[in-house]
Design a protein around this nucleic acid. Sequence first.
RNA 1: GGUCCCAUCGUCUAGUGGUUAGGACAACAGGUUUUCAUCCUGUAAACAGGGGUUCAAUUCCCCUUGGGACUACCA
Length: 529
Amino acid sequence: MVRTRFAPSPTGYLHIGSLRTVLYDYLFTRKEKGTFILRIEDTDQKRFVPGALENLISILNTFGIDYDEGPIKGGKYGPYIQSERTDIYRRHAQELIDKGAAYRCFCTEERLEEMRKRQAEAKQAPMYDRTCMKLGAEEVEKKISEGLPFVIRQKIPHGRTVKFDDLIRGTIEFETQTIDDQVLMKSDGFPTYHLAVVVDDHLMEITHVMRGEEWVPSTPKHILLYEAFGWEPPRFAHLPLLLNKDKSKLSKRQGDVSVEEYLNKGYSKEALINFVAFLGWHPGEGEETEIFTLDDLIEKFSLEKVHKAGAVFDTDKLDWFNFHWQKRFHHEKLDNYAKQIDPGYTMEKSQKNDMFYKFTSPEAANRFAEYRGGLLLELCKSHIPEEWMKDKDFLTRTLVTTEEKILKRPVDIKEYIGFYFDMKEFPKELILNPKMKVDEPTALLGLRKSLEILEKSDDFDNQDKIKESLLKLVIDLGLKNGQVLWPLRVALSGEEFSPGTFELIWALGKEESLKRIRQTIDKHFTNKP
RNA sequence: GGUCCCAUCGUCUAGUGGUUAGGACAACAGGUUUUCAUCCUGUAAACAGGGGUUCAAUUCCCCUUGGGACUACCA
């Protein structure tokens, strides 16, 4: 029976690397139909962050990662918070002393520091010099009765080889004389990670330990501890590290590492899971898609397919995963709703990838438009300033055509929509990009003719009417859409890149639109005497 | 410095003792589109180097190089 655990220390946020660790842990356990345990490793009092536990559980919750035993939920092997288990560790530390596998150390911080300094100067590996190991029983008693603070150190048996079979890396060996006498119990009465993890994993009957590669060097210490206690060690699986762009271990310094940050930025949980799952793992040959749900992952996951090498955390691909998931959810919602109100509906996509829904009744079409607008409203809500949001009409009318764009990266939409309201200094130069395939005289002709039409028009609150009349003009002039609309758009926005022509005219209104077109034409001529 | 780990396009990766070394993201180019972010098509891009083993190595072994982790009374 497989029993695994995720054992974070409550630092106040979930590291993206930890997310990957829980994920693999969880996937493996669910696949094996095992028991997944949450344990809190809070033996470092200096690191205590209030509310961290609740925060952690809620984040795991949003990802759909549930545990079978742990804090709050309980279980037969509790408590699951290490700070509530200090008696257990103390007893086990004493057992080690009794068995001669550990000893008390009274060395002061200063002495240790000085020792390490000397060792560094002599180009030796910094290791405890075992001064206190040689203390006699009476001496130890005497120091204790004097009230001297002490730690308990693991007594590493020298001259041996410790080896273990890592599920991901294969056999790894260490010579024991290169291993330091690890501190097991701190002078404050709390255990270090090394003691606590071994005692708990054994007592909680953990069968598989999954953790980051940074733990490989301390694994032999743990093996030796299991040995000293006379326990069977679990299987170890050391996961490859997540890396910064410069290939160092993923760190706060070089970008966001908090899962919450990414959630707040608008990345979906599905995208995050999907992305992180593929950092260090791949289902293998014959897998044509990279889009996986949590359930898909449970089905396909296997430890044998986990890589040994670290993976650079590159958010470009995260953006792409996010786009796919956003799009998928959006389409699903629309389809579901359409089906619900009108089973006879049909949908087709334009070349621009806009979706056109057709309904059998005008009522259904109206209800759907309402719903679709509402969805877009939701999409935009967190990324658009309050005051713009008041005009729901604005959103439904203008943004429907740009659904795909919004789905890609919500953050950028702010800038996009900003064009509507940003009254930049006008007039500006008429930018004629070679891509427009339009010469100056033609561009100016188009502007003049457009101006004439718009001056006569009163349909400024109706994009479709504006569109209709301008497209008619294009045909009348015998030109291509771009040759007229492109310069017009530039004249209106003053930008090479902006929202569409019709959207601009609608948003700017008659007065401002006409003013800008006139000014652009005038400026063009005053600059060319 | 010591110990340990790792090595396929820029990134994530597939892959096998014999392949035109495949895909995705990014990049670039072209196309559609009233421009950008969508969509379509295409291009460039990798087995770190040197020895072996072998009829044959990207693949197996060794060395070198490079990168990384650890080296706390933190986890």
